[in-house]
Design a protein around this nucleic acid. Structure first.
Lengths: 257, 257
DNA sequence: ACGCATCTGCTGACGCGATAAACAGTTTAG
DNA sequence: CTAAACTGTTTATCGCGTCAGCAGATGCGT
């Protein structure tokens, strides 16, 4: 899981951007990286990322596991291809009216939908700065397009993008993990624990008594996204008013390190 | 990785809360779950979570892998113990002056520090609603303590907690993944890609030209945390002014589903 | 003081994962 | 037509979590 090979990035990129020349000799290839990735996506959608093993993917084509290595350097690159495949619908936000806020909101919702449709995406993009394909860069471009009208410095636009992308991930995480059965069990057992040790967790107890953990039918993205965008709006207002601030003012934390 | 056993939660909780009776017969146990967890933490700190295998942990005591199963039901529970061990310093925010905002900020910073000291924590708490030990609940209690003075409804306090905890995770993710070597390589290769396909990613190109990806010496938690807390402040202001709003007003997204 | 139930820790085995190596069979360029 | 280039297979290695069964230590009830 932590074996980097240094050449992975380069080979991954080559694969993602289709920069390989399939030669003309020998038998016709029966597969393509794309077809393999799509089969892997189907498998992951149905049984989770953990079920995606070289042999199970190969089995979808009635081939042996090793056959895949003719098309894909290794599993790392296969997962990168899966991500790219799933992001094929690059958002076009130019039709969204109302400026940066509705556009960013729409971007976030589209991203959330992809995560909902492919719960494994979260785990697949979790670690490392991986090789990015054209579709992934397309999503990034769309986000910057939405942020441009804020008039904020590019560095801050980037930070806001990271913030919102992270938010979508967080919310997706909650939704992915959700499991009626398991969740009820968890609520029951943990609730019982807290009640038993109420004196040790007074504020938690108080909050629960006032409905903090009451289930909620609203889309879980609504509330946090509204908060974050309010925060961005506040930054824009302050920047417009003050002429120039770097956005890292003293509000919200003092200690130097 | 995806094998749930239904009894895991219950046994995990029993272990975390020390609700087992070690009997009196037989040889003296040479270990305790706690000592095992601490050894595993040291291993993970040094070589990453992937390096934490039953045999490697056991090797730290010159024992065989199977010996650990006398103390710990399985690896799942071991990881839960590791998390609990690392959260032993439950924050006490009562000394922090200035109301909810500095307190929440402090909570976030402490959490960030733990994540920095134990990069594997992120992966260890990534999945599922796991069994929570007293320390973990302590952190939760501290957060609600900080949120109480906002006067917001408990359900919103909970949502804000989730938002901020997620934010810390996101930032921690960035920091954990960071690797000078690999990052420079990534910047070089990906930058080159974007330049080559500039026409396809106009806004991204524009943002980069204006310094969007320029490295930054500020603590990466500063900016996003300030934005989120500004957003919370806006919610408080609005609630105070309007008397009553449910916090899911129309700002920031309209479509019903 | 003794014996056995109760422990601890060990070895061996299983199944499953990624992937390296060597090989058999196929296709096409020269 | 032949050899290079290519596809797919079998076999093997290594590491993982964990189950089963065994050897030896310990201390309770007698």
């Amino acid at each position: 899981m932590a074996k980097e090979k240094a050449r992975d990035l380069r080979t991954g990129i080559a694969l993602l951007w289709g920069e390989q020349d399939r030669p003309t000799r020998g038998p016709k290839p029966s597969l393509t990286p794309r077809r393999i990735a799509d089969a892997a996506v189907d498998l992951a959608d149905a049984e989770g990322l953990a079920a995606v093993s070289m042999s199970k993917v190969a089995a979808a084509f009635d081939l042996s596991a090793m056959a895949l290595y003719r098309y894909v350097p290794g599993k790392t690159e296969l997962v990168e291809l899966m991500v790219e495949s799933v992001l094929a619908q690059v958002p076009d936000l130019s039709a969204v009216e109302g400026g940066w806020r509705p556009r960013l909101t729409h971007w976030a919702r589209l991203s959330q939908q992809v995560h909902r449709a492919h719960p494994w995406l979260l785990a697949a993009t979790a670690l490392r700065r991986q090789a990015m394909g054209p579709h992934q860069l397309g999503w990034l471009d769309a986000a910057f397009a939405a942020l441009e009208p804020t008039g904020l410095p590019a560095a801050q636009q980037h930070r806001i993008f990271v913030l919102i992308a992270g938010l979508v991930r967080t919310v997706a995480q909650e939704q992915v993990d959700f499991d009626q059965q398991h969740d009820q069990e968890w609520n029951r057992l943990t609730g019982e624990l807290i009640t038993r040790h109420a004196a040790r967790f007074p504020h938690l107890t108080h909050a629960i008594a006032h409905g903090a953990f009451t289930p909620d039918t609203a889309d879980p993205l609504d509330f946090p996204l509204a908060r974050v965008l309010d925060g961005v709006q506040a930054l824009i207002d302050r920047t417009d008013r003050d002429g120039r601030t770097d956005g890292n003012e003293r509000r919200g934390g003092e200690e130097p390190s």
